[in-house]
Design a protein around this nucleic acid. Sequence first.
DNA 1: ACGGGCGGGACGACCCGTTTTT
DNA 2: AAAAACGGGTCGTCCCGCCCGT
Lengths: 205, 205, 205, 205
Amino acid sequence: MLAANSPAPARQGGASSTTVDNIVAAATELFGARGLRGTTIAAIAHQVGLTDAGVLHHFSTKSAIIEAALERGLQQELEQMQEMLAPGGLEAISRMAQWGAVVEQNPEFTQLQIVLSAEGLGADSPFHAYQSRRYANVHNLVVELIREGVDRGEIRAGIDADWEASAVIAYLDGIRIQWFYSGRQLPLADAVRHYFEQLIDRLTP
Amino acid sequence: MLAANSPAPARQGGASSTTVDNIVAAATELFGARGLRGTTIAAIAHQVGLTDAGVLHHFSTKSAIIEAALERGLQQELEQMQEMLAPGGLEAISRMAQWGAVVEQNPEFTQLQIVLSAEGLGADSPFHAYQSRRYANVHNLVVELIREGVDRGEIRAGIDADWEASAVIAYLDGIRIQWFYSGRQLPLADAVRHYFEQLIDRLTP
Amino acid sequence: MLAANSPAPARQGGASSTTVDNIVAAATELFGARGLRGTTIAAIAHQVGLTDAGVLHHFSTKSAIIEAALERGLQQELEQMQEMLAPGGLEAISRMAQWGAVVEQNPEFTQLQIVLSAEGLGADSPFHAYQSRRYANVHNLVVELIREGVDRGEIRAGIDADWEASAVIAYLDGIRIQWFYSGRQLPLADAVRHYFEQLIDRLTP
Amino acid sequence: MLAANSPAPARQGGASSTTVDNIVAAATELFGARGLRGTTIAAIAHQVGLTDAGVLHHFSTKSAIIEAALERGLQQELEQMQEMLAPGGLEAISRMAQWGAVVEQNPEFTQLQIVLSAEGLGADSPFHAYQSRRYANVHNLVVELIREGVDRGEIRAGIDADWEASAVIAYLDGIRIQWFYSGRQLPLADAVRHYFEQLIDRLTP
DNA sequence: ACGGGCGGGACGACCCGTTTTT
DNA sequence: AAAAACGGGTCGTCCCGCCCGT
């Protein structure tokens, strides 16, 4: 799914804090592969070449690591999104076709997002509210693009923007799962491009 | 997503082993809500009103409970599917529009499926192979229906059956997640019906 | 110091729960010897011949063990106190002279009490309120006995009951510490008896 | 937090190592409040406004901090004692009546002493020997004063100096505990003065 | 057959005091 | 003065046997 949340404070050190970066990268990978609960601090530490205590020196708690991993991924996605959707309206929508390629380049974080969306399903999960907001944000963003398209006369007036937005997001959410279960054989980028061609056909007069 | 795996032996013992059923029901709910790793035997036992040992008398291991929960859910879905898709071809596809209603009536098992699809993402996960097969089966099933429709002249010949099948499954996989994150407010059944109307429009000459 | 608190629920099982009793006994000893924080669950378990988990099966938390140890000790002391002080008035006070002997027979629990009185000193300690109440109760009890003695004409009227109570308790609290630091050589029972002889001299007309 | 107590640093080394003093003051307070084991280096550091490593720059080990805290407290006590007891004999004993006031002005160190006396109870504790010596020293000191008084003819000859010394020390040890548990409401200085009046009554012919 | 008391081995997160490096 | 890393623990949880009542 698309990312659209939280401004993200950004590490102030600027340059070298490599160990912290390594930890976050390893965590992202493992969280995606084994789930949050299935990933132990020790496992993360091992991957970076530290001991548990070494990791806990940088992040004093496991949730801190989770948050950092999320933040980093969102930050990355946000940047890509902004330049992708800058034109607005139909043009922006047609550019979303590149989304498949983005996922293919970022499998670890994509996996983490899927896992999080599953772990947040229960209304009492600590991630539920967070994910709810994320979905709402993305939904609104797409609705906005469609309305903009209608205003510009690029998109037909009769379109149900809400339903279309849900449909697009659902397709993207669903297809990336199939990509993983196809052993990453499914031509994700092509499929998504095809989807958007068809979508634009339906949206334009 | 749709279920289509494992024939399932079907509980033969006529006796009304209610306790076993209760355990499986509770397990299904909790697995969906808290994930497999996040659900303890004790929690299941508590929900049924037993002690850990009480549960372990019926299922000697946790994985046995997981398997039973899966089996029961698949069994249920299978029955519903079979009568739903019996006609084959376009008729069967248009009947899939009811799928939304099915999900709405079975939220616990639906949640469990989402969780499982996330937990199986990693290629080394114990659920990966299982899920891969499930996705492949469903994909084939839909492809089959489309081909059947083409053969019967109900569906246009130029259609890319593989891509269409993926798209349908992706939409269904994705929209149910949004349903959960909308606080179950999203009109799932309507949305799915709408999707299939449009799909059939596109498939028919 | 003397014990006078909490009614104590009393184990309902009645007979055999020996393991629980053993755990509490071992805990009392170790808490006294090494302090609360200095005593690990593993150490208690080792002493009883169990593993950590074995102990945690009976008491699911360390504080539960502490509470049980306290309760048991207080229960024991309460019984001894009640028959000791039954007569009331001067007679009861003179019987308190036996207290030294009681301590000598119960060094583990005595030590635990000293340790607790130290760990509860800080107003924010979890034991502070508990200990405050205990001291207040004992103080009142002794004041009561003195007043009773005055009423019965056994004790001189001019006595400052509050101060005398504090003094008695202080002496008992203090002398037992010296007993421990004398390597238990100090003739505690004799010293206490001597103290009370002198006290009674001062109290009686 | 800054220390607003400490009557006089009296550090012999000319250099104004204030940080070291602050650390020792903070440590004294925390050791008293939370016990030795309950006080972490980090907590001390936090109180002084340093990091753990900052503290460890000045004292390379935790026991070094403990020793420094003890030493500082003893140093202070010693000075006060020496001028207090200089006259010797009965006069010295009657001056001990001021002890209550001293405690009231030094609650942190008093608390630390109580805690230490509890933590040293076990014969295997690292503080046991230290405390044993302390108690023996004080005991001898008081016995000495009494003997001196007898020699000078100020004190009756029949007195059991050993027992009297124990009793005095016990009272002082015990009453300060009650002072803490009374929320520091108990009029400690008055009570102690009253005790010594009575004691002197008993000792003099 | 069913249910539970009791016990344990493995591991979870997190903490603590310390050494090494900057 | 502090940042980085670590070895050794601490409490507590989890899954699962063993054995004893009904």
